[in-house]
Amino acid sequence: MKKWTAFFNILLKDIRAYYLKPPNISWGIIFPLAWTGMFFIRSGQGLDSIRSLLPGVVSISILFGTTSMLAVTVTFEKKNASFDRLLLSPISLELLMLAKTSGAILFGMMNALVPIGMAAFFTQLSGFEWGSILAAILLIAIASTFMGLFIAVSVSEVFEAQTFSNFIRFPMIFLCGLFFPIANLPNFLRPLAYALPLTYGTDILHGAILSENMLPLWLDFIAITVFCVLLFVVSLRNVHRKWIV
C-alpha cells in the first residue's frame, strides 16, 4: 500500500507541476487541432476524408504529446538532481519509472480525444470498433511514452532529448503507415516500417475505423505490446547503467 501512495503522489505531482501547465494544455489541444486541420485541407476531399485521416492524426497526436513531455519530467529532473530524490525513495525502480511515465500516457490519451472529438463534430462515427480504438490509443500512448523514456534516459540535456526525439518522430510519421500505406514504400524501407511500434498501433486504428488493417489485429496487439515491454526494460537497464554509476 505504501508504495502505491508513492506511485500516485509522483503521478499527481507530475500532473500538477507539468501537464496542467497552460503551455502544455494548449500544446495538447492546439497541436492535434493543427495536424487535423492541415491534413484535412491537404486531402482536398472535404468531409469524406475525415474518417480516412483519423487513424493517422490520432497516432501522431499521441506520439508528439507523449515524447515531448518525458524530456521535461525525466531529463530535466535528472539534470537538476531532483530525480535523485526519487531514486533514493524506498520504491522499486520499475514502479518509480511507471509512476513517472503514467502522466505522459494519460496526457497522450487525452491528446487522442481531441481529433476524435473534432471528427465527431463534423461526421458520423458509426461503424467504429470502439473497444479496439481505445485499446490502440492506450497501447500507442504506452509505446510512445516508453520511446520518450528511452530517449530521455539516453541523453543528459533537455535539448538533446528534444533533438533526438525529432530524429525519431519525423521519419516515423512517414514510415509507419500513418498517411501513406506501407505497401507504397520502396522495398528497402519496408523492413524499417515493421521495426517501428507505431506501425502496429496505427494498423489497429486503420482496422477499427476503416476495416483496412494490413496485418491481423491479434498480431498488431502482440507486436506493439512486445515493443512496450522491450522499450521499458531497455530504459530501466539504461537508468541502472547510466544513472546509478
Binding site: 505504501k2 501512495t5 508513492a6 503522489n9 505531482k13 507541476a17 537538476n80 524506498p90
Partner: peptide, 20 residues
C-alpha cells in the same frame, strides 16, 4: 534539489508521500 514549482509545504508533503 526540491521542486521549484511546488510550495514549501507541498514539497514536504510530496517527500513524505514517497515514504508511504
Amino acid at each position: 534539489n526540491l521542486y521549484p514549482e511546488l510550495t514549501g509545504f507541498e514539497n514536504l508533503v510530496f517527500c513524505a508521500s514517497l515514504y508511504g
